[in-house]
């Protein structure tokens, strides 16, 4: 052997089918043994776990139930169709002539505005309290 042993990464690559194709395993007993022990390790880690019989039976029943049903492949498009209809309806609603806009309110002059603010400032109680106070006034 002139070349060195395989690296850890080369062993892993080889296990997954993408390792070097240099024939080293045929020539080197040590690496071959390591490779075989890694194959055994992979089988151990990847061995099939138990699946409860009841679970598989229930799954088969569900499949049989679905086999009995008519083909409902198009049913999944119903929500999309409904959403599209809403969008189309919305589009036409927006195309309707716009509602008449209300006439703008009369502009309040600056003088009037200052007078109102001044009156508010001079008042010792909030305007909203006026009607309530009136309830307790005689006459």
């Amino acid at each position: 052997m002139t070349r060195g042993h395989w690296t850890e990464q080369q062993f892993i690559d080889s296990l997954y089918g993408v390792g070097p194709e240099d024939g080293h395993l045929n020539a080197c007993a040590e690496c071959r043994a390591r490779h075989e022990s890694m194959i055994a390790r992979k089988r151990q880690i990847a061995s099939e776990p138990e699946i409860p019989f009841e679970f598989l039976a229930a799954q088969r029943r569900a499949i049989h139930r679905r086999l009995d049903q008519p083909d409902r492949r198009n049913a999944r498009f119903l929500p999309v169709l409904a959403a599209s209809l809403v969008l189309v309806a919305g589009f036409f609603a927006m195309k309707q002539p716009p509602a008449p806009t209300p006439a703008p309110k009369a502009q309040v002059s600056d003088t009037q505005l200052f007078a109102d603010i001044y009156a508010l400032e001079q008042s010792s109680e909030p305007r909203a309290a006026g009607p309530v106070r009136a309830l307790f006034e005689e006459n």
Binding site: E8, Q9, F11, I12, D13, L15, Y16, G17, V18, M38, R41, K42, I45
Partner: peptide, 16 residues
Amino acid sequence: MFRAIQKLREELRDVY
């Protein structure tokens, strides 16, 4: 596969 092994390098080294 190369990309998968690259992304799983650390875990695979621990496995093996």
